[in-house]
Design a protein around this nucleic acid. Structure first.
Length: 840
DNA sequence: CGAGAATAGTTTTTT
DNA sequence: ACTATTCTCG
């Protein structure tokens, strides 16, 4: 499009900002007055629109970035937004409020929380801390945690909070016995939180809402400040978050929300798609703009995505299209098990990156490792992939998984730090009070808890009071103890044994001592003092893999450096807060030299030229916990849709015939979602006649042609056996790189190594002399089954005569490997299902 | 009280 | 398989 000068400086700036945007995108950028709802399909340039919109507001409309807030769902998105604004706004971009809802609220509460009785030094409790508190609440209420699983109670509390319901609110709304229990626990849980000067994740939102509601002056301050308020990933907001957005937009009414209902994958975390509908009710004059042109994917991928999502009934119609070319077909394949599935991935990657023809591709690809992602439903699936990567020398990075800050040793140190910052934090206290062991056992702890509860103080305050003379406050920050109640309780404190008492006092002195000197120490000093004086370091080093775990702590310590420039007063608090609010995905680096292993959830918002989706099986995707509920099933489908739409050029949908599960291994059926991928978009099996081809999309294909989708879902055992048999011939990749370049690409603390000991796979270790060769599965002689054993001659209804070469128990069945005569080849069969007869 | 063994429950996704 | 809690013994 030829740009036409409108004359004047503003015009040219405006043109510059609007340049290269399509007409809907332009509308979205320039519709700056009043509420606006942007429905943005995947790859529709959403982020571009948001950043350009902000640039437009600043440079054309003349609004200072200080008066604009953009709330996102992840820290990464926030950072990215700011980064992309730099070229457009320069240094001014820093004035912009761009953060997650949680970080934004934490900020507000840190500043204004005292208006609603929040302690200045409040800590933010994560999931594990919350659980600890719920458990304690249950104990105090004498409720059986077996009958009332803390997890379930907590989720009840959490969902109440995300709908702005306090315990009283919840009490009004519900009636069942279960609800009654939740309400009672909720009440006690809140007491405990208050006692600990802590807030949980949901509180960040809820209490900010309450603050704005109850303290109009504060609300007004923010309402007036933010002339424009934008919410990204609107489909992921919960009721409470949306309520805050509304509060903040009350004055200027310039609220712009961007989302895609089809990518709503967080309803389990109380995200509520109804917000999108409510928006139009709440702001009847809201403009609606849909971004439907996709700039990311090939036509083929987009067609697949569209067919997939079309099966959902609960959706807002939206039609994606692209000018991109047709591209290459989608590959659907099956491996025998997750190991083979992973091998398939590796082999394909080797083909692609070798810049030669891919198995199904037509043109040289020029794909780099950084262009490739393997996506899965659950983190556990990464293991097989990691092992394959290690074995065949493919560098990889795992996003998420066991998070750095969740590692035990790191959490321990964090707990010490928290306790120093906030002595009311009973949860942290309980975590470290006997770590390393100081002779403080369960009895003592019970006692301590009881006394603290009766006295209405923190446990730390009780400990402090034990050393009679070292009493009020000089050691601790002011809120540590409310002196009198302890004084009154003093007589009752005695039942501690002399030994326990000594230990408690010793512990109190360690923590109290550091807290007292806090002002003279920087963050690193504090951490060192903890490691040293608590004896933690010495203890850890004496433990199993202590060195390694100590390294994690050193890494954690190093991450504290960022906060050294902050004043000593706030450094600790600021550091702890960032630890609570920053997730690992946020700092995922884009690497060009490694493939990315990532869950489907975490992949939202990303894109890769090549995407492998593994585990396309019933029970995994859709997940078994979702199959009974149509609503949840639709969410699973959206999750699948998110995965598919991450791919720019190549998409692989893989599954395994059987998959390891909690030790055992079970056969699975192809995901129903595969049936939604039209056949004409799929790659034809490359060499249909020979079994080595490795493309097993044929199972579904055949299923599809031979009858309706339901029939194919219940694909007969026969068919599954066939495909299993065929897939075993997937030729293993050559272990090209082998050892070299085979390191985990951890580097950053945030890129998680799954297991703390990066031992190579067992198989690899056992046969180091032939690293390239994959040892034959179960080479040892298997135990004999009820009626078949190695060497037996058998007859199969379809495959004919053969000889049993292996027979091993799997779960409650036996897996028999049979070498058939007459070209049927070697097949693995399940004894219980296969029509096998023993001959002779 | 503490350490190791036995046992139960668990994991879908995470700001 | 893996962890977290409970049990048992020294």
């Amino acid at each position: 499009m030829v740009s036409r000068r409108q004359g004047g400086r503003a015009g040219s700036v405006s043109e510059q900002i609007l340049d290269g945007l399509n007409s809907n995108q332009r509308d979205a950028v320039t519709a700056i007055d009043g509420p606006l709802l942007i429905v943005a399909g995947p790859g529709s340039g959403k982020t571009r629109v948001i950043t350009h919109r902000i640039a437009y507001l600043v440079r054309v409309v003349g609004i200072t970035p200080y008066r604009i807030a953009a709330v996102t769902f992840t820290n990464k998105a926030a950072r990215e937004m700011r980064q992309r604004l730099f070229p457009l706004l320069g240094q001014a971009a820093e004035q912009l409020t761009a953060s997650t809802f949680h970080a934004f609220c934490a900020n507000v509460l840190r500043r204004e929380g005292e208006h609603i009785g929040l302690d200045r030094d409040f800590v933010i409790y994560d999931d594990a801390d919350q659980m600890a508190l719920v458990k304690r609440a249950l104990i105090e209420l004498e409720l059986d945690p077996k009958r009332f699983p803390p997890r379930a109670i907590l989720s009840g509390i959490s969902s109440a909070k995300s709908e702005l319901l306090g315990s009283d609110g919840l009490a009004h709304r519900s009636g069942s016995y279960w609800d009654e229990i939740v309400v009672r626990t909720y009440e006690r849980y809140e007491d405990l939180l208050r006692q600990c000067s802590a807030v949980d994740f949901d509180d960040l939102i809820l209490r900010t809402y309450q603050l704005f509601e109850h303290v109009p002056d504060v609300a007004r301050k923010y309402q007036e400040r933010y002339v424009h308020f934008m919410v990204d990933e609107f489909q992921d907001t919960n009721i409470a978050q949306y309520a805050i957005a509304k509060q903040l937009a009350r004055h200027h009414l310039n609220i712009c929300v961007v989302g895609d209902p089809d990518q709503s994958i967080y309803t389990w975390r109380n995200a509520d798609i109804r917000n999108i509908l409510s928006f139009q009710d709440d702001y009847p004059k809201a403009k609606l703009i849909a971004l439907e042109e996709n700039y990311r994917s090939t036509q083929t991928i987009l067609d697949a995505a569209r067919s997939l999502i079309a099966s959902n009934t609960q959706r807002v119609e939206k039609d994606l299209w692209t000018r991109n070319g047709e591209g290459v077909p989608i590959t659907i394949a099956e491996g025998y098990d997750e190991e083979e599935e992973a091998q398939f991935v590796i082999r394909e990657i080797q083909h692609l990156t070798r810049n030669s023809e891919a198995v199904v591709g037509r043109k040289p690809s020029g794909v780099g490792l950084g262009d490739i992602a393997v996506m899965y439903r659950v983190n556990a699936q990464s293991r097989a992939l990691e092992e394959a990567c290690l074995r065949y020398g493919v560098p990889y990075q795992v996003v998420g998984g066991m998070k750095f800050y969740q590692r035990q040793e790191v959490k321990d140190i964090i707990a010490y730090l928290r306790l120093i910052a906030n002595p009311n934090d009973d949860v942290s206290l309980n975590r470290v009070i006997n770590l390393p062991t100081r002779g403080i056992g369960q009895r003592t702890l019970d006692h301590l808890a009881r006394i603290a509860r009766d006295a209405g103080t923190s446990q730390f305050a009780v400990i402090q009071s034990l050393s009679g003379d070292a009493q009020p406050g000089q050691a601790m920050s002011a809120n540590a103890l409310s002196g009198e109640s302890i004084a009154m309780q003093s007589p009752a404190i005695s039942p501690f044994t002399a030994r326990a008492k000594t230990s408690l006092i010793a512990f109190g002195n360690i923590v109290g001592g550091i807290a007292a000197e806090r002002d003279n120490m920087d963050l690193l000093d504090i951490i060192d003092a903890v490691l040293e004086r608590s004896g933690y370091q010495r203890w850890l080093l004496s433990q199993e893999r202590g060195e390694e775990r100590m390294e994690n702590i050193q890494e954690f310590r190093a991450s504290a450096r960022e906060f050294l420039h902050v004043g000593m007063e706030e450094a600790l608090t600021a550091f702890l807060e960032s630890v609570s609010l920053v997730a690992d995905v946020d700092s995922m680096e884009e690497r060009v030299d490694a493939i990315t292993l990532i869950t489907l959830h975490q992949a939202k918002g990303l894109e890769f030229p090549v995407v492998f989706m593994v585990g396309m099986e019933e029970g995994l995707l859709p997940h078994s916990r979702s199959v009974d509920d149509p609503t949840q099933l639709e969410e699973e489908r959206r999750l699948c849709y998110v995965g598919v739409t991450r791919a720019k050029e190549r998409l692989y949908l893989l599954r395994a015939f059987r998959r390891g599960f909690r030790g055992g291994s079970e056969p699975g059926m192809p995901s129903r979602f595969l049936l939604d991928i039209p056949q004409e978009l799929q790659a034809a099996p490359s060499q249909p006649k020979r079994p080595g081809a490795g493309n097993l999309g044929s199972t579904t294909r055949r299923a599809k042609t031979s009858g309706g989708r339901q029939t194919s879902l219940t694909a007969s055992d026969e068919r599954r056996r066939e495909s299993a048999a065929r897939s075993q011939h997937i030729t293993p990749p050559s272990a090209g790189a082998r050892q070299s370049g085979n390191q985990r690409v951890s580097g950053k603390r945030t890129i998680t190594q799954r297991s703390t000991n990066p031992t190579p796979t067992r198989r690899f270790g056992r046969a180091p002399s032939v690293p390239g060769q994959r040892p034959i599965r179960g080479g040892n002689t298997a135990p004999s089954s009820p009626h078949l054993t190695t060497g037996d001659k058998v007859m199969h209804k379809v495959f004919g005569e053969g000889i049993v070469t292996e027979c091993k128990p799997t779960g409650n069945d036996f897996e028999v490997t049979v070498a058939f005569r007459d070209g049927a080849g070697i097949k693995r069969l399940l004894l219980g299902m296969a029509p096998l007869e023993k001959l002779d």
